[in-house]
Design a protein around this nucleic acid. Sequence first.
DNA 1: ACCCCTTATGAAATCGTTGTCATGACGGCC
DNA 2: GGCCGTCATGACAACGATTTCATAAGGGGT
Lengths: 335, 335
Amino acid sequence: MVSVVAVATRAKVSPATVSRVLAGRVPVSAETRARVLEAIEQLGYRPNEVARSLRVGRGRSVALVTGDIEQGIYATLAKHVQGELETLGLDLVLFNLGHRQDRLRHFLERAPSLGLRGVLLSSPHVMDMEELAPVMKSVAKNGIEILSVSQDLSGHGFPSIIHDDVGGAVTATTHLLNTGRGPVAFVGRIATSAIGRARYDGYCQALKARGLEIDPALVWDISQGYRADAGHQAMAEALAKGLRFRAVIAASDELALGCMAAATDRGLAIPGDMAVVGFGGLAWVGFARPAMTTVALDAGAIARAVGEFFKARESGAKLGKRRVIPANLVLRQSA
Amino acid sequence: MVSVVAVATRAKVSPATVSRVLAGRVPVSAETRARVLEAIEQLGYRPNEVARSLRVGRGRSVALVTGDIEQGIYATLAKHVQGELETLGLDLVLFNLGHRQDRLRHFLERAPSLGLRGVLLSSPHVMDMEELAPVMKSVAKNGIEILSVSQDLSGHGFPSIIHDDVGGAVTATTHLLNTGRGPVAFVGRIATSAIGRARYDGYCQALKARGLEIDPALVWDISQGYRADAGHQAMAEALAKGLRFRAVIAASDELALGCMAAATDRGLAIPGDMAVVGFGGLAWVGFARPAMTTVALDAGAIARAVGEFFKARESGAKLGKRRVIPANLVLRQSA
DNA sequence: ACCCCTTATGAAATCGTTGTCATGACGGCC
DNA sequence: GGCCGTCATGACAACGATTTCATAAGGGGT
């Protein structure tokens, strides 16, 4: 591979000067610069990122740790984050936990040796901070930014860019309550997902604001993940039991689709007999029939905030530890 | 960061010996090994991957270049590939083209300096091989494996692991034909997607096998991507024109969902008045209502083949240039 | 005319590993 | 008993960039 010394030789300067031309912040005479640039051009030289990383002590890539990239919302996030990082000259390395939290720890321990510039935590897992915080601190001590983009970790000192899950759930639940159909059910991972938990909290708040009790029979804490089959199963069971409710809010769009399917299978009309609202705002949910009403999350806004975070870090500017991106209920047919 | 020399000092050996203990293929006395291992343990030493990459001339990460990770099938692929690579001690860096082909070239040019071990091409774009082949060859010359995991590039000398898109489309189209509903329509990106093109070819083959003509009015070559809105629009327009057809095969599940929605919106019963089959086999499509019949692609199998490819490369074994993974029509309600 | 400061550049050290070469010790064989 | 081959280990160079330190030239102020 053509290296800086090849360029230097050709331009009849020292390697240091080539580096200076590239860095651009140390004065180099116009004439020398032109010669170096020409040599670079002719040789097709590209600075070796690995060598640079070693020398300066950190690389140009950021890891995105997801719980399950197969879930639409994480894939969407990954797309936007990658695009945003790219404008900053940063690469994205993807680490998919697959819902096994122990792997997070292993990954974190490996992070410093990979020369990462930052780690984006987008796993919804409820983290055992007793165990994780020391590892995360030690990663941070190596100059690697740890940024949570799913759950609020600002209380533990880690900057967080999060959706307003609570607010979104409050809005959606209130909307359902306003239609006057009586009891509203909730499906989601509650015990095992910090995000699901936040959405559940919003659901509870909305009910309490109306002076309503939370009916445990209408709260379905699933554990198999956020996929459609889990939603279908939970809903089908509730329906089979003859539970009285005519609306359900799901903690993901996939879950909501499963709920809609179970209701339809039971002969229920949506939204006539059963209203369903999802969470996520995936591109295709408007094309389910009936079109799904959902709490849309703005992955683009999250990504932009991530970009700003890294930009601010470069320039030394200080940003708040916590940034909340609003969630919007988009009304369609299902509720 | 604790380095090999710290370990060496502590274990009272030279850095070289520490390296040897870690590499494990050079004899080291049991006593020394124990001392080194103990020092590593006590200091919490982790070899610096960046330095190693620089020294050995290649790193431990593989890039996955996707057209649009937001499309379910690519996210699914990313998940499986990441999991598979991880078992080989390899990391995944994600590069999402966002359907702009020129960025592929830029990425490829950057690849050698990133110290990648391989590049997985999963963009469905029809590539201008006149332009790209030289760049790809030069990347390969740097010891970076280029592996296509979406379209067949084996004719250009690049190993390819692909789905049997043609076969899948033949099966699906034939199935539709067998239901005796007459003309079958096709939606997908044809001119701009090699994968869409392959599926279209399968569609054509199936028709020809029955001695049927291809009706251009029933072939909708979309350009806006594979998303649900495009499918909805194409279908809605065809229906508005009063075209006579009672079945449609879509080149992606998202597209198919859009088609189903358009048909439903028009008051058509699925599959009674209109049969729809998708392509992909995403986890949620079985929960659309009616449940979507789709040509399921096996992302897990692709990923395993990718894993085998890299394993074989380590051991020096030679694998075929082309590997085809079967696609299975899974029958549900929509067709 | 002298001194000092700025500007432009080169030499060399450095980041953390790995691999080559050299060295010393030991055992076996003739 | 001497020689050679093997084993274990250390010293050192190298990967390719950046950065510090040093040096030289040129210009302005007094």
